[in-house]
């Protein structure tokens, strides 16, 4: 049962198409897990559809006649192809081809990578370039956006914790595998957590399994402990908002 969802503001921005692509990665990966939010997003699309279909717009416009004549004959003669007609097809099948090419099945193949992440994770979680923050915590960068947002995965061993830290900008976390908890609650697979710059917390992973989370951050997190502070320059160095 998913208990934590994106806010109505985020879903509105997603449905209207105004959400940045980095944030849309997290929202759409959550939607794959959450039927309730898919229904909500669809309802929000109806608002866009109504505004879009404003009856005040005149249906025939002399200026458009040239475009009309030109376009319709080309389309019906099959002379132009859609340039974005990739929708609706299966996501890249890199994963399948790897399996078929005889690559030994690792323990990882038990994980299903969400469709919206497959363009960023072409094969297995294990094949990503992981950077160790501590023996129990690893981070893999998936995309550094020009606006300074970073899309990354955090992978934490069972029972381990991420040292106490604050967020210096907005952060979204989606639990992909396993579970963790902090002062505010327990978060399981599919849960979507929003944190802002004021928030300080110390997440602990449950003892039964490792935890893999997708994170979308506008700025690097900052560790607040005496020793862990030493990691902050490394995090800053790898975050696109500060480079």
């Amino acid at each position: 049962m998913i208990r934590y969802h994106p806010s109505i503001e985020l879903l509105t921005e997603y449905s209207s198409g105004s959400l940045s692509l980095a944030k849309a990665v997290a929202v759409s990966a959550h939607l794959e897990h959450c039927k309730e939010c898919r229904t909500q997003a669809h309802k929000l699309e109806l608002v866009g559809a109504e505004l879009f279909s404003d009856p005040a717009i005149p249906t025939s416009d002399q200026q458009l006649n040239q475009l009309k004549t030109n376009l319709l004959s080309k389309i019906t003669n099959g002379e132009i192809e859609s340039s974005f007609d990739k929708y609706g097809q299966a996501a890249p099948s890199v994963r399948m081809s790897k399996l078929q090419s005889g690559r030994p099945l690792s323990s990882e193949s038990k994980y299903q990578i969400p469709k919206s992440l497959r363009q960023l994770i072409p094969s297995f979680y294990d094949d990503l370039k992981w950077m160790s923050l501590s023996p129990a915590v690893k981070i893999a960068t998936l995309s550094n956006e020009k606006d300074g947002t970073q899309v990354a995965l955090t992978r934490i061993k069972a029972g381990a914790f991420i040292p106490s830290h604050t967020h210096t900008g907005d952060e979204f976390t989606l639990v992909l595998e396993g579970a963790f908890s902090d002062e505010s609650g327990v978060y399981k697979k599919g849960d979507f957590i929003s944190r802002d710059a004021r928030h300080k917390h110390k997440p602990v992973v449950t003892k039964d399994a490792e935890c893999i989370c997708l994170t979308v951050t506008e700025a690097p997190i900052e560790f607040t402990g005496w020793f862990t502070r030493l990691l902050n320059p490394i995090l800053r160095k790898h975050h696109p908002s500060t480079s």
Binding site: Y14, A24, V27, S28, Q119, E145
Partner: peptide, 12 residues
């Protein structure tokens, strides 16, 4: 958007 992310799989 200046991005490396392809939106095709994010919006159905």
């Amino acid at each position: 958007y200046q991005t490396g992310i392809d939106p095709d799989f994010l919006w159905a």
